[in-house]
Design a protein around this nucleic acid. Structure first.
Lengths: 153, 153
DNA sequence: GTAGGTGCAAACCTTTTGCAGCATG
DNA sequence: CATGCTGCAAAAGGTTTGCACCTAC
C-alpha cells in the first residue's frame, strides 16, 4: 500500500505546514479514513480506530474530521435521512452521487456538462460557488432487477 | 387567500383518500406550512402553530411533517451544516437551490438542461431516480458586493 | 367501538464543549 | 515550556418513541 502511505504523507505535510500538530491519534485517524474506500460515518471511523487503539476518543475523531474537511481532504455528504457520511477526496476527482434508497448503496458518477450548467446558472444569479452537492435518490440497477424478479414470481 | 384554501383542500382530500384522519392539528399544521413561503425548520413551524394553538405538540408537528413528506407535499433539504429545512411543493414547480454560506439566504433556480443531464446519467447507470437534490453552496450576489465594498474601504 | 392521532416526557443519536492533564514543536 | 491536542463526561441540538388518553370515522 505504497499509495496510501504517500497520501498519508501528503496530509501530514499539509497539516504541519498549516501549523497543526501531527499526533499519533491524528496519524491513526487519517490512516483509517484514507484506507476506507467507502463512505463512512463518524462512528464507523471511530470503531475502525478503536480496533487499533481502543482509547481513541470520539471527540478527537470529530475534531480531526473537522480539520480534514476544512483542509479539503474529506467531504461530508448528507444521506437525506438526516445522517452524514464522509469520504476522502485525495486521489479521487470530483463526482456526484446516486443513493439507492433500498440498499443504501452509493454510486458515484461524473458529467462535465452538468458541472458547466451549474457554473452557468450560478453566474446568471451572480452567485459564487464554493462547493456543491448533487444527489439522485432512487433505486439502483440491482434493486430494480431484484424487485422485478420478485414481482414476476 | 383563495389559492391557499384550495391547496389546503387538495392536501386534505389526498390524505383522507390515503386513509389518514383529518384532525384539527393536521389542518392547522398544513395551513401554516402552506402559508409559509420560506424554507422553514420543524421548530419554526411549531412556533407558528403555537401562535394559533399553544398546546400543539412538537411530536405532532414532526409526525405530520413526515406524512407530508411521504405524500410528496413537502420536501426536506439539508442546509449543509447539519440542519434541515422544509418547503412545500404545492404550486411550486421543481427547482434547485443556491445556499449562501454568509447570510444563509436560499435562492431557487431551475435549468431544464440540468434535469435532462441527470436523467441521462441515471439511465446510463441503470438507476431509477425518485427524487434528487442539487445545491450550490457559496456567496450570493449581495454578500459578494458587500464584501468587495468592505475590502475596498 | 376501534383504529389512528395526540400530548407529554423521556429516550435517542449525533455532534459539541469545558476542563484538567499530556505531548508536540 | 507554551500551546495545542486529548480524553472524559456532560451538554446541546434535533428528532423519535412509549404510553395513556382522546377523537375521527
Amino acid at each position: 500500500m505504497v499509495k496510501a502511505d504517500q497520501e498519508l504523507q501528503i496530509v501530514e505535510r499539509h497539516l504541519r505546514e498549516c501549523g497543526f500538530r501531527w499526533t499519533s491519534q491524528r496519524a491513526l485517524i487519517v490512516r483509517e479514513a484514507l484506507r476506507t474506500h467507502e463512505h463512512f460515518t463518524a462512528e464507523q471511523l471511530l470503531d475502525l480506530c478503536r480496533k487499533v487503539d481502543p482509547k481513541v476518543s470520539r471527540a478527537t475523531v470529530y475534531r480531526t474530521l473537522a480539520v480534514l474537511e476544512e483542509e479539503g481532504f474529506v467531504e461530508a455528504l448528507d444521506t437525506g435521512d438526516g445522517g452524514r457520511r464522509f469520504e476522502h477526496v485525495l486521489g479521487h476527482e470530483h463526482h456526484d452521487h446516486m443513493v439507492c434508497l433500498e440498499c443504501d448503496k452509493i454510486l458515484e458518477f461524473r458529467d462535465d456538462e452538468l458541472e458547466r450548467r451549474q457554473e452557468l446558472a450560478a453566474r446568471r444569479a451572480g452567485f459564487e460557488i464554493q462547493r456543491h452537492s448533487l444527489r439522485l435518490y432512487g433505486r439502483c440497477r440491482e434493486c430494480r432487477a431484484r424487485d422485478a424478479e420478485a414481482g414476476r414470481r
